[in-house]
Design a protein around this nucleic acid. Structure first.
Lengths: 259, 259
DNA sequence: TCAAAAACGATCAAAATCAATCGCAAACGA
DNA sequence: TCGTTTGCGATTGATTTTGATCGTTTTTGA
């Protein structure tokens, strides 16, 4: 076996793979093999590692960047996942909205269901960082105020420090927040720190924080933490939520509504 | 069976199908097969997947878009008015954009044409108050930063005092501004004071202000005034612009480019 | 209404890709 | 120096993707 004179160290190689995939949005195993001059087995092993680290997503024939559009938006993908539960959760949330209120919706598929229910409610004021929700209500419905900020493609939301510039100037009666993970010990988490930051700011500006999360989210933990259970006034979930989870939450002073 | 030397990865191919269908509104299986150089079976399988994901709707012979309905409906009327002129103006504007720049686009159909040209330019940073532009670039292209603010339904833009919260924290190299009316004596005007306010703020934050306006806008006056000719560095218009108008503008120090 | 043409879905085989396993060589620590 | 660990390449059988074929369904036009 003839090895390259100065083979790149494994981490270097993996870093190169990562940037190649990020820049191109996609790379095939064969191309990576040729440009890095190693065997396909090595490329595959590297991709496996990178995937575990969440830096790329493997597909048949290569890998795609987790930041590119090719990585199907988690969000769009999951819209259909347990859609009936999400619909019911949204309907339960809708009933809590009183006339002329100002409310906030963050990104996520559950809150999008709620947004759809607001089409006839021209009495409300809606603040949101969700591009999809804004599109949904672009023609009719509540007065819509967008938070602004950097567009995060995967979730189609506006996130980051710039959002707080707008958020600090408004106040909402109720904030309906979707989340990626909710865990009794680790609190509320989502995948992106910027997303978490925006959620955090809202939690502080809202009269009441109402968490919308189907039972799949229970005990899930993601990367970036936001808020905690103390800041949540009410959780709306579905009947599949583990009884124990409900019980412990109530003990901690969080109301729980199962739709 | 002879396979393509470097076939695109499946997600790439599906993404291409998706955008083709979104842009054209519809696509036939046969057309997709020809432009992607795969068999109809593959196209059908892809369409099946895309349909499950809710991105297209299959019909006999091909598929239609589920995503572009709003875009078309709201903007169709205005967009098609002197569309060729607007397209050329946008292309002329595009040529002025240099690598890695930060640019601003306000609402309006001309700027929307420009936004469409930016899909491949991931080097840029785009700041905009146009919901349509954001939708156009929601999947790929520049880094997108939305100004936030109240959504004005008629124009599908974010306007009002809240926009300045974000705008004051960013700075753009070039601001490409559409306008409703431009008049030598009354300056630049638009229909809504809030819209005008946002335009005003941007004009002050931008390195260069480049006005995009087809000749129909000449000597039109609307209700709300913003900026004035002194703040405009360049006007891009079409050849139907009255010669006198051009001449007087140049005399006042505004460069004029007729595409 | 009927028949031809087009499009479709199901099925199968070829090709590409993948995962698992082995052995080799260099690096490492005692 | 010797045994161990680590990273890599090669091989092989399994899996996935793709293209072709064929019978069925839908559309179209007389």
């Amino acid at each position: 076996m003839i090895r390259e004179a100065h083979p790149a160290l494994a981490p270097q190689r993996r870093e190169k793979i990562r940037t190649m995939i990020r820049d191109g949005g996609v790379a095939r195993v064969e191309d990576l093999r040729k440009s890095l001059k190693v065997s396909v087995a090595t490329i595959r092993r590297d991709l496996e590692i990178l995937e575990e680290e969440g830096k790329v997503r493997r597909v048949h024939g290569g890998a795609v960047s987790t930041e590119s559009r090719l990585e199907e938006a988690v969000f769009e993908n999951k819209t259909h996942l347990s859609a009936p539960e999400k619909q019911r959760i949204a309907e339960a949330a809708y009933k809590l909205i009183e006339p002329d209120e100002a409310i906030y919706l963050n990104g996520g598929s559950t809150t999008l269901f709620l947004a759809r229910l607001l089409r006839e409610r021209s009495d409300l004021t809606l603040v949101t960082n969700s591009l999809q929700a804004a599109i949904e209500l672009a023609d009719s419905g509540p007065r819509v105020i967008l938070t602004g900020g950097e567009l995060r493609r995967i979730s189609q939301t506006m996130v980051g420090p710039l959002t707080s510039a707008v958020l600090e100037q408004v106040r909402v009666d109720k904030a309906f927040m979707g989340t990626m993970g909710m865990c009794l010990t680790n609190g509320l988490t989502t995948t992106d720190p910027n997303e978490a930051y925006s959620n955090d700011v809202v939690s502080k500006q809202a009269g009441k924080v109402i968490l919308l999360a189907d039972s799949n989210k229970a005990e899930k933990v993601c990367f970036a933490r936001f808020g905690d259970w103390n800041s949540v006034d009410l959780l709306i979930s579905d009947k599949k939520l583990p009884q124990n989870f409900t019980k412990l939450l109530r003990k901690r002073g969080v109301k729980v509504l199962l739709s």
